[in-house]
Simulated scan of single mutants.
Amino acid sequence: MEILYLNFTAPDDYATGNAIPRILRKYQDRDQASRMNRFSAYWWGASVVEQVDCFASVAEHQRHLLTPLGHDPGPLAAYEQARGQVRGFFLKHPRCSKIMVGMHGLYDDTTYGYSRPQHGAPRVSYEKAADIVLSFLRDDVGRRPISMSLVMCYGARSAQYDVSHDPDQLGGVARPDLSSAFAFKFYAGLCKYLNVKMSARTGAASFDDTTGASRVESELTLRHQIQIDRNPLTDQEQEQLYAQHQLELEMFMDEIRPQAANPRDQVQVKAADRRGAEFAHEQLLSLVGTDPLTRAKREAAMSRFRQLPQAKPKKSGKLTYEYDPGTHQVVIKSKYPEPRVVQRVNI
């Protein structure tokens, strides 16, 4: 598989630096399996993922668009360098049909992608991102079919971010309007000019260490994270908690992280770890309320639960977008647990 990765995060971003080797590992494993089939090995060759850093070119590209015809827009070194790298990639890999676009996203922002996962970081709007991606791809891709993956936490999440985006909650009346998401608006800027099908995720996204498969934050995890963000414990509340509920909190933490009677016995250690994990999961399913003690328990349970695979399942939170030129609609599908159409949007 030949993959072009258009990176809108900071060039030294830790998440991107980890994601690309994992993505490559996923396709290298497929390469190894295909070696048993000589035709497949000949056709696909060895997989490659090439990263092109695009964020530095955002300001230059905007300046270029705003400069009146015939006037000098000034130096466009970063933009031309990125564009030249894309052209060079397609010269080496003319059959490439897989594009990844990477940036950070925040669950409460459907307008901007970020260079780092925090408010206040340099950002790019969906309009500018789509315009730059289109300018990089249009000449080399033309109208041949391509597959695009928006590698962005919460990219497919709607403006109703605190409403469940579980597959069974999508589609129908009074459900999240998926056309308000960054991913939809970004895709709408591309799909009339490129023959592209795109995927995006409704939660925080990552790639599995071993297999490279994508993982997406569960709705349970995000629901509690939103509650934690909305009601952080103040210093005064924490002091009161330890003054009034210290013993209860200590007992709760013992349940979250139980100790094996013999720490050298791996069977006991693993059994204790399972008990703690199950307890944390049970607490997140049952914890209700905004009083300081409940909030403290929620934070402790979340800290433990985030370490578990079920906090980011492999098969969850993935939406796909495909433009139907006959009806002028974007068809949005939920991939898991079974593919189904959840919304159609006229554009």
Rank of each mutant, 00 (worst) to 15 (best):
T16R: 06
P337Y: 13
P145T: 01
F39K: 12
D168V: 00
H224A: 03
L308G: 05
Y79H: 12
L194K: 02
G155P: 11
M103A: 13
E255F: 07
F184A: 01
K26P: 00
A15R: 01
L69S: 08
K318A: 04
P339V: 04
S125V: 09
R138A: 08
A156S: 04
A19C: 05
A205K: 03
P167Y: 10
L285K: 14
L170I: 02
E80W: 12
P167G: 07
M198L: 05
P263E: 08
K318V: 11
Y107S: 10
L285E: 15
R304K: 15
T110N: 10
W44H: 14
L137Q: 04
A296P: 04
R30V: 02
T9N: 08
L24W: 04
H61F: 15
T221E: 07
W44F: 14
L284Y: 04
P145G: 02
G203C: 05
S34M: 10
R123P: 08
L284H: 01
A300I: 07
I20L: 02
Y193R: 07
R298S: 05
D324C: 09
H328L: 11
L106I: 08
L91A: 12
S164F: 07
R95Y: 10
A56I: 00
A205E: 09
A15W: 03
V330L: 03
Y107L: 12
C191M: 02
Q283V: 00
P68V: 05
I146Y: 10
Q160K: 07
A280F: 08
S218T: 05
D324K: 07
R95H: 13
D166H: 10
R63N: 11
